[in-house]
Design a protein around this nucleic acid. Structure first.
Lengths: 265, 265
DNA sequence: TAGATACAACTTGTATCTAAGCTCGCCGCG
DNA sequence: CGCGGCGAGCTTAGATACAAGTTGTATCTA
């Protein structure tokens, strides 16, 4: 099967020119394969071979092998000895797990922020309120919007000030790209909705209300799942849920405003 | 510098015997280097070279290279181009981040369990109550006790039924081994204390009280930090904290029983 | 025709080789 | 005495060669 190359380098003579652009061959191989993985050029369950990819990129098998290894560590591939690299399929179950993990990590950031004091909360809230992903005046194209969305959430997680969690969060976001690339159902006013939700989350933080922020965040991620056509699990329940107020039983009725997200500005 | 080999294979002729025990050379290299990393044979900041390790294990540099790559992905090494593999130092800040991440993931498991219903909670509680790590009648040796402790927590996380989080949790535990191997301050009745805390957590789950379980878990991990001589951050605060009841202000005084851990059986 | 067997094609695993980058110490110069 | 050039010796990056394992298929037998 033939695939488009993913970084423009496209089969340079490579005899003596070798590492054309100064960027390492391993990096090029990684970027190419990951690109194909993310945009769906490599289908679920496909069996890749080092030699095939190496030939397509006009390099030896060594850098491709290293790229495969890295992608296996990231959960995109599974390497079967003497057989090939298997493209791990994405499933509804994985989407659920993915969004759950995101919910946990982003909620952590809010919690830690709250534990650091109201001022920290408000500062981050103000910062996020000014973020492009929380501003929907000017229309953005697909890629731009996606990057902004991703950055918004990355900043939120970064506010948790835990490099381990931030790193793991980044890895999760990469995997999610694969999901959304496959499900590709474009909701026309999806962008506006997401923007509103971002605004609401930032507002809750700025007002020093972490519990509301977490509730809104949960609703936001629930939306992502629904957009993928997947039924949200118990952790995404509208009322209480896990990261919610108290026990399972307890404060009810406080969830009604999860949808009545007061526009912030 | 000479290091002990970590898997008994120790410099087989390897000329024609090649893959001695059927296990791949890459696997052997990985196990050896990780072993040295975990038990402190490789010191913080040390600069390893592929060739050195390859020679010590009587294999070519290729498998060692792959092992290094994998260990970099796991956060143990950092590879500097044309210079060597740098042993990432462990720090108090990392310990804090590590335990924070553990708290988040284990709390997630409890939350999800709770969201699945009281029966699920009680079942896992009963399971954990019967776990070796929650039983302190028979004394265990160091290694045995450590394995039991690790398994106890792994089971708790597994109950969250999220493979992504479970995987990331495992990686964190590996890194923690490195920390504890270095700080090595053996508290004589530490084992008994940890056992009691495990019992208390299991009991809380069995009684269907996720909030108490989370509170006890937080105290448990706070203990780990203190044992490492590190001041617990805001998330490990005795009262409320983040994963706690409601907002920052709210139910107070409910934390007194965090120490009055009623013995389970 | 159904099943077992032998073979061919393809794959990865590992060793080895070449080229190039980085560091550091030596040496000459100001 | 301080400082910049320069080369030796280290390191990895990547290519290639070869050995060994796996699978699909053709063929042979009952």
């Amino acid at each position: 099967m033939k695939h488009m190359t993913h970084n423009g380098v496209e089969a340079a003579p490579a005899g003596t020119a070798g590492t054309a652009a100064g960027v390492s061959a391993t990096e090029r191989a990684y970027a190419h394969v990951k690109g194909c993985l993310l945009d769906g050029s490599y289908a679920d369950g496909e069996l890749l071979s080092e030699g095939e990819v190496a030939a397509a990129l006009a390099m030896s098998r060594t850098p491709v092998r290293e790229a495969f290894l890295r992608l296996q560590a990231e959960g995109f591939l599974r390497l079967y000895p003497k057989r090939g690299a298997w493209v791990v399929p994405v499933s509804a179950a994985e989407a659920q797990a993915l969004l759950e993990a995101r919910l946990v990590m982003e909620s952590f950031a809010i919690d830690k922020l709250a534990a650091r004091g109201r001022d920290a909360l408000r500062a981050v809230g103000a910062d996020l309120a000014a973020h492009p992903a929380a501003f929907h005046g000017r229309p953005m194209d697909e890629g731009e919007r996606h990057a902004a969305d991703r950055d918004f959430h990355a900043r939120l997680v970064a506010a948790g000030d835990n490099p381990l969690i931030s790193d793991q969060y980044d890895a999760l976001r990469d995997r999610q790209v694969r999901l959304t690339a496959i499900a590709r159902r474009v909701d026309p006013d999806h962008a506006a909705k997401v923007g509103d939700e971002h605004v609401a989350i930032a507002a809750a933080l700025r007002e020093g209300d972490p519990e509301r922020a977490k509730r809104l965040l949960r609703a936001h991620l629930r939306g992502s799942l629904l957009r993928l056509g997947i039924t949200p699990g118990p952790l995404f329940a509208e009322s209480s849920g896990a990261a919610g107020p108290a026990g399972a039983a307890g404060a009810a009725g406080a969830d009604a405003d999860a949808d009545a997200t007061g526009r912030a500005d």
